[in-house]
Nucleic acid binder design. Sequence first.
DNA 1: TCTTTGATTATAATTGTTACAATAAGTATA
DNA 2: TATACTTATTGTAACAATTATAATCAAAGA
Lengths: 147, 147
Amino acid sequence: MTEVHLRDALDTLKSTGVRITPQRHAILEFIIQSMSHPTADDIYKALESKFPSMSVATVYNNLRVFREAGLVKELTYGDSSSRFDFVTNDHYHMICDTCGKIVDFHYPGLDEVEHLASHLTGFEVSYHRMEIYGVCPTCKEHATKVQ
Amino acid sequence: MTEVHLRDALDTLKSTGVRITPQRHAILEFIIQSMSHPTADDIYKALESKFPSMSVATVYNNLRVFREAGLVKELTYGDSSSRFDFVTNDHYHMICDTCGKIVDFHYPGLDEVEHLASHLTGFEVSYHRMEIYGVCPTCKEHATKVQ
DNA sequence: TCTTTGATTATAATTGTTACAATAAGTATA
DNA sequence: TATACTTATTGTAACAATTATAATCAAAGA
C-alpha cells in the first residue's frame, strides 16, 4: 500500500520535471508511511539521523514542492504549526481536543452541501474541508480512570 | 441585533466574574459589528484612534478571555494569522481563494455526520467545522473581464 | 485608607516559516 | 570528458504572529 503510493508519487514528480533527491524521497516516504500527520519539525527530527546535514529549509521547500504537485495537503488547525497529510482518498479528520491526535474518518464527500452553498452564495466552489472535534477513546478512558 | 448580542455577551462576561473594561467593551463591539472576521491586528488598528495607548497584547489577552468564555471562535485557515468570529448560530464559512473574503453560509448542522463519525471511531464528539473554498462572484467576474 | 486582585502596557522572547546567498549536485551540450 | 547551465541543498538571517514577563495602573473590598 505504502509502496504503491510512494511509487505513484515519485512518478508524478518525475512527470512534472522535479528531481528526486534522497531528501525528497525520504520526506515523501515518511509522510506516506506516517499515520500521524506530521509537522515540518516532526519530519525534520525523524530524518536527522539519516540526513545529519539536512536543513529545516529543505523540509519546508520540499513540502511546498509536494503541495504544488498536489501530493500533499497542508492542514492548519488551532495549534501553532501546520501539519501535512498525504493526499489519498476522500476523508475527513477527527481531532482529539485532549491529546491532539488526528484520526482519518472516511465518508463520502458532501457534494450536495457544495452545490447548495454555491447556489446560495454565487461562489464557484472548488473544494471543502471538515474537521470533527471531540475526545478520543484513549483519553476518554483515561479521564474516567483518573477521576 | 448587534446591540442584543453585545448586551448578552457583556452579561456572560459579568456572570463569569470578568471585569468589563473600556478596551474589552470596544473589542467585543468591534467583533460583533464587523462582518469581516477580523484578525487581531485588524482589531488593534481599528481601535487605535479610540485607544491610542492600547497594547497589542491587550487585544490578544482579551481574545483569549472571550474565547474561554465561549463568546468568540478562533478560525485558523491557511493564512498566517488567526481570524476571530463572534459565536452566534450554526453557520459555515465560504472562503474565496482569490481575495480571501469569508462569507457566512447558513446550513443546518450536520448532526448525522457527527453521529456516524462517533460510531466509527469511538470519539466523544463535541463539535465540527467545515469550510468551503472557491472563487467569489466578484473575483469570478473580474477574472473573466480581465481575460 | 490600605490592601488585594485583576487589567493594561511596553517590551522582550519565542516560534514557525520564509528569504537569501553561497555551495553542491545533476543534466545537457559541445 | 570538459563546460556551461539548471536545480537543490544548506546555513543563516529576517520576519511576523503570538506569548511571556515585569512594571504600572485601576478597581473593589475590608
